[in-house]
Design a protein around this nucleic acid. Structure first.
Length: 604
DNA sequence: CCCCCCCC
């Protein structure tokens, strides 16, 4: 066998040595009853020992079956925790699989169970590891020896920065658990929230939270009330800090995408000191998806994304339905080399400060996927936005844009600006048949329901499709013709000498299950009739035949509709009203794209 | 001790 187990390394590690690149055989994999941590029973050919814990970010290797019983692994990065006086834990932060379970097919050698306190490797086994710890003295380890009160063996092979005075030894974030309290970390703040207040039955207060990153992993930390005041100003995003003495508790995965079983709460004893020797601490880590991958992303997924800002809207004010609060937002359209564009909504300060001039590269961490308009993205309080980050992906995108992207005529927008079913790309768009919508009772609650449906226009009611509307900006209320060349708007309380024609169609739409009457306003109606309201207003009197034929011509076309259903009460009578939010013609190009995709999936 | 993250 070409691969040799690191005989004696289990004893060496338990004796406080730190051999590098330890080659071990996996004897068993055990899942912890809580969380998703895994423990390995490993063998070095001499001893077997269940002291190895896998960092959770390595779990994919277990789930994929790479790390399985009998596989031979090389542990490239690890860290030791002293659990009790005689007991150590080896936390595996990095490993390579040298031989798969099939390659090996059984247990190598005849190892005996390692008993803590056993002196060295038995005679005959090479002391594979001991040289390393002699040739690579660790400054942190030296500090430990001179400070016997501290927990020993906390350096992870001499890679950890030196803690400042009064701080316990620096540990990798991945090794923190609620069961030890003598630790420091040296971590970069990759995300910092605003201060938020809360008030509920359990009380009220304020807090801010942050995400901390080092070489081993990440953790979320929260500072409440007094600690919120104490640390909010000093903690700056992207800077590196030593942190010690905070409370650890199990993270509720429901509320966070941070990859750690635990999270940190600052307490009155928590200390934070800026670290300026920060080179070894990684910067923010992105896990970018390309925009074409969003077509198949589930709604509410959290994603990292990088692309060029091809367009940005002005800041708009909207009213939050639940609270009546005014919110400010800005929509920006992001493109990447997959020739796809997606809309990203920025909120509040981020919306106001954003400057899209010059097509900057936008890197976003932790944006939420929404099914609005097909697929779109929204920033959350926990998201981070970087403009023109100095990373290779950004430079590549800039190059793509200048060479090809800016001239590309075939960029497909996954988010329809009209806010509707769009091109109906995106498996997440909720499509229903008209019968399903009816059976599910959509629109029968207080709030409107929205859904997408593919349907054919069967009939457009000819009567009253046009009305004379107030031309004042954003008013569009029906005006009263005073028959003296003047038109009165009751909303604006003004008499004006002109009006705009506006459309309000009543259409019957049908799919193979059911038909509904729907109302279609201006923009969508113009699209469906292929004429502007102004043209139609003129034609109605000047060329009634053509007017009629335009209306007739709107029938028997197929659309992906975005529909809004709401119960409306008029004269004590309640009935469901369906309104067309958007209508995207089902065009052959999109059909072909979807067919090709479906065929690929079927043949895969 | 929060855990909301909006609107079309």
């Amino acid at each position: 066998m070409a691969v040799q187990l690191s005989a004696g390394s289990i004893a060496a590690i338990n004796n406080g040595e730190k051999p590098e690149d330890v080659i071990l055989q996996v004897i068993a994999v055990r899942k912890f009853p809580t969380g998703d941590r895994c423990r390995l029973l490993v063998s070095d050919g001499v001893h077997r020992c269940g002291f190895a814990i896998m960092a959770t970010q390595l779990n994919p290797m277990i789930n994929s079956g790479e790390v399985a019983q009998h596989a031979v692994i090389k542990v490239t990065k690890y860290f030791c925790n002293q659990v009790s006086e005689k007991k150590k834990m080896m936390i595996i932060l990095g490993l390579e699989v040298l031989l798969t379970a099939e390659d090996v097919g059984g247990e190598i050698g005849n190892p005996t169970t390692y008993e803590s306190g056993t002196s060295n490797a038995p005679a005959g086994a090479p002391a594979a590891a001991s040289n390393h710890s002699i040739t690579r003295p660790s400054p942190v380890a030296n500090v430990q020896r001179s400070a016997p009160g501290n927990a020993p063996a906390a350096d992870g092979g001499g890679m950890m920065p030196q803690a400042p005075d009064g701080f316990p030894n620096v540990r990798p974030i991945q090794t923190l658990t609620p069961y030890q309290n003598k630790w420091s970390i040296c971590a970069r703040v990759t995300q910092k929230s605003n201060i938020r207040t809360w008030s509920n039955s359990r009380g009220e207060g304020k807090l801010f939270s942050m995400e901390l990153l080092d070489q081993s992993g990440e953790i979320r930390a929260t500072a409440f009330n007094a600690e919120c005041d104490k640390f909010y100003d000093m903690i700056e995003p992207n800077k590196v800090y030593y942190i010690c003495s905070a409370t650890l508790k199990t993270a509720n995965k429901q509320f966070t995408s941070v990859k750690n079983d635990y999270e940190m709460t600052f307490n009155s004893g928590t200390q934070v000191v800026r670290c300026t020797e920060e080179k070894s601490i990684p910067a923010m880590q992105f896990d970018f998806v390309t925009i074409d991958q969003l077509e198949n992303a589930q709604k509410d997924t959290i994603v990292d994304l990088i692309g060029l800002c091809r367009d940005a809207s002005e800041v708009a004010t909207i009213v939050q339905r639940s609270t009546g609060k005014e919110l400010r937002k800005r929509e920006i359209s992001i493109v990447d080399h997959t020739n796809r564009a997606v809309s990203l909504t920025l909120w509040a300060e981020q919306a106001e400060k954003f400057d899209g001039t010059g097509n900057p590269v936008i890197a976003v961490k932790g944006a939420k996927v929404s099914d609005f308009g097909g697929v779109s993205l929204s920033l959350l309080g926990s998201s981070t936005l970087q403009v023109n980050p100095d990373i290779s992906e950004a430079h590549q995108l800039k190059g793509w844009w200048e060479q090809a992207g800016c001239n590309s005529s075939d960029i497909i927008n996954l988010s329809n600006q009209r806010g509707g079913a769009g091109n109906a790309v995106g498996a997440n768009a909720v499509f229903k048949t008209l019968l399903e919508a009816k059976k599910e009772g959509l629109g029968s609650r207080d709030q409107p329901d929205y859904y997408n449906a593919k349907a054919i226009v069967t009939l457009v009611r000819k009567e009253n499709i046009l009305y004379q509307a107030c031309p004042n900006d954003g008013c569009n209320k029906k005006v009263m013709d005073l028959n003296n060349g003047m038109y009165r708007c009751e909303k604006c309380c003004k008499e004006l000498d002109r009006f705009n024609w506006r459309l309000m169609l009543s259409c019957n739409v049908a799919d193979f299950t059911e038909n509904h009457w729907v109302t279609v306003f201006q923009d969508q109606a113009e699209l469906m009739l292929g004429s502007t309201a102004q043209e139609l207003g003129t034609l109605r009197d000047e060329n009634p035949d053509m007017f009629q034929s335009i209306i007739a011509g709107a029938s028997f076309k197929e659309y992906n509709f975005r529909l809004r259903v709401k119960m409306e009460t008029y004269n004590d009578e309640s009935r469901l009203k369906t309104m067309v939010m958007s209508a995207a013609p089902v065009n052959p190009v999109d059909l072909n794209r979807r067919l090709i995709k479906e065929i690929r999936e079927l043949s895969a």
